[in-house]
Amino acid sequence: MKYNSVFDIIGPVMIGPSSSHTAGAARIGKAARNLLGSEPSWAKIHLYESFAKTYKGHGTDFALAGGLLGFETDDTRLSKALELAKERGLTIEFVEDTSAVSHPNTARLTIGNEEGQVELVGISIGGGKVEITELNGFELRLSGNHPAILVTHNDRFGAIASITSILAKHKINIGHMEVNRKDLGKEALMVIEIDQNVEQAVLQELTNAQKIIKVSTIVS
């Protein structure tokens, strides 16, 4: 196995006890919060296999709650996140789901507030690293370890070009990009991993582009 740095071996700076069950879970929760665009008021979290069996003992429950509250993996408040969630009016339901999944550390989060809701599937792949494999019914493969822009758009000619041209104008480099659609001519999802976080003005310009329905971000 090839490691890019020592941090791939020892994992991130984090509140324990487990990089996979705690740090990874916190990052999945925070990714969901970022994609919603604000703090949720409710969350329903399905946990599978290893997550479902050990989530209380390994801190997966409070880590997911902490991520939903916007906490980083090394935030000392993480272990108290369930209590803090109640204080902030965030209701969380955990479901031990027996459905078959492709990875033992899998969680499906459906979260929302009065502005809308988001549903995603995240897996913790070890060392605090995660992947988002589904968003609002779209299959994708998104690392939660790099800044990303997610663009829901009409599946029409020119939509992709309108987004990439704006990023090029602002000299924002694309590290990885994929496009998925549910059906021909319906809604589609652009997933763009980039090298740096983007300013709000750029996000607004992307939102105003032709054929664009919604723009969400994951920040590093």
Rank of each mutant, 00 (worst) to 15 (best):
N4P: 01
F7N: 07
D8A: 01
I10Y: 06
P12Y: 14
M14E: 05
I15Y: 05
P17S: 14
S18H: 07
S18V: 14
S18M: 07
S18A: 09
S19L: 11
S19A: 15
G24E: 08
G24Y: 13
A25T: 09
A26K: 08
I28T: 13
K30N: 10
K30D: 11
R33G: 03
L36N: 09
L36A: 03
P40E: 11
W42Y: 10
A43W: 08
K44C: 03
L47M: 02
Y48Q: 02
E49K: 07
E49I: 04
E49S: 14
S50Y: 01
F51E: 03
K53C: 02
G57S: 12
H58K: 13
G59Y: 03
T60P: 09
D61R: 01
L68H: 00
G70P: 00
E72H: 05
T73R: 05
D74N: 12
R77I: 11
R77W: 09
A81W: 02
A81C: 02
L84V: 04
E87Q: 14
F94P: 00
D97M: 06
T98P: 04
H103F: 13
T106C: 11
R108L: 06
R108F: 01
L109G: 01
L109N: 04
L109Y: 02
T110M: 00
I111W: 06
G112A: 08
G112F: 12
E131D: 10
E131T: 05
E131Y: 10
E131M: 11
E134Y: 06
N136P: 07
N136I: 04
G137Y: 10
F138T: 01
L142T: 04
S143H: 13
G144C: 13
P147D: 06
P147F: 09
I149S: 03
I149P: 00
V151Q: 03
D155Y: 03
R156T: 12
R156C: 01
F157M: 15
A159E: 08
A159P: 04
A161K: 13
T164I: 15
L167R: 12
K169H: 14
K171L: 05
G175P: 01
H176G: 10
E178D: 13
E178T: 15
V179T: 12
N180G: 14
D183C: 10
V191K: 09
I192D: 14
I192N: 10
E193P: 04
I194V: 15
Q196C: 06
Q200P: 07
A201Y: 08
L203M: 09
L206R: 03
T207P: 07
T207R: 15
N208E: 12
K211P: 01
I212N: 04
I218V: 15
V219S: 08
S220A: 15
